[in-house]
C-alpha cells in the first residue's frame, strides 16, 4: 500500500465517522459541528486528488458559509438544543429496508463496472499549476461553458430572491 492510500483511508474513515455522528449526535448543535468535520474531510479528499481549487472552495463555501448558516439556523430557531425526544420513530424498520435495498441495488449496478480495478490516466505534471487557468478559460469561452456560467448567476439570484421572500413573509407574520 502506498502512502497516498494510507492517507486516503485515514481521511475517508474520519469523514465517515463524522458523517455518522451528524446523524447520531443527540445535541443538534454538536451534529452541526460534526457536519463541519465531515465537510473538512471531503475537502481533504479533493486535496488528495490534486483538485486544489475545489478543495479550497469546499472549505470557503461549505465550512465558511453553509455550515455557519446551519449553525446559525439551529441556534436561532431551537429553544432547547438538547432534544429529549427519541431519535428513532416506529418507522425505522421500513427505513432500514429501503436503505438495504438501495445499497443492494448500488452494489448490483457497480459489480459490472471496471472502474475499481482500472487505474486512471496520470495527470499532466503541471496540472496543479494550470488547472485554475483551464477552468477560467472553460467558464468564459463561448465554445465551452459560458451559458452555464451566466445561468449560475440567475440561479443564485433566484436563491437570494426566494430566501428574502420567505424571510420577508415571516417578518410580516409577527415573528422576530
Amino acid at each position: 500500500m502506498t502512502a497516498q492510500q494510507i492517507i486516503f483511508i485515514v481521511v475517508a474513515a474520519f469523514t465517515l465517522v463524522s458523517a455518522l455522528r451528524v446523524a447520531t449526535a443527540r445535541n443538534i448543535v454538536h451534529a452541526a459541528f460534526w457536519l463541519v468535520a465531515a465537510l473538512f474531510g471531503v475537502a481533504a479528499v479533493y486535496a488528495l486528488l490534486n483538485a486544489n481549487f475545489i478543495a479550497v472552495v469546499q472549505v470557503v463555501v461549505y465550512i465558511g458559509a453553509i455550515a455557519i448558516l446551519f449553525i446559525f439556523a439551529v441556534m436561532l430557531t431551537r429553544r432547547d438544543m438538547r432534544d429529549a425526544s427519541p431519535q428513532l420513530n416506529r418507522n425505522w424498520p421500513l427505513g432500514a429496508i429501503v436503505a438495504a435495498l438501495t445499497a443492494a441495488g448500488l452494489i448490483a449496478l457497480l459489480r459490472g463496472w471496471d472502474g475499481f480495478t482500472r487505474s486512471a490516466a496520470d495527470l499532466p505534471a503541471d496540472f496543479g499549476a494550470t488547472s485554475v487557468n483551464l477552468l477560467g478559460e472553460a467558464l468564459v469561452s463561448p465554445e465551452a461553458y459560458v451559458l452555464p456560467f451566466e445561468v449560475a448567476s440567475v440561479l443564485l439570484l433566484a436563491a437570494l430572491v426566494g430566501a428574502v421572500f420567505v424571510a420577508f413573509n415571516k417578518k410580516l407574520g409577527g415573528g422576530k
Binding site: 486544489n52 465550512i63 455557519i68 449553525i71 488547472s131
Partner: peptide
C-alpha cells in the same frame, strides 16, 4: 507554492469564524 494561495486566506478565515462561534456557544 499553492496555485490557489489567495483563496487559502479565506479558507483559513472560515475556520477562524467557526472557532469563534464554538467559543461563544
Amino acid at each position: 507554492d499553492l496555485n490557489v494561495g489567495v483563496l487559502f486566506i479565506i479558507a483559513a478565515g472560515a475556520i477562524g469564524a467557526l472557532s469563534i462561534i464554538m467559543a461563544g456557544w
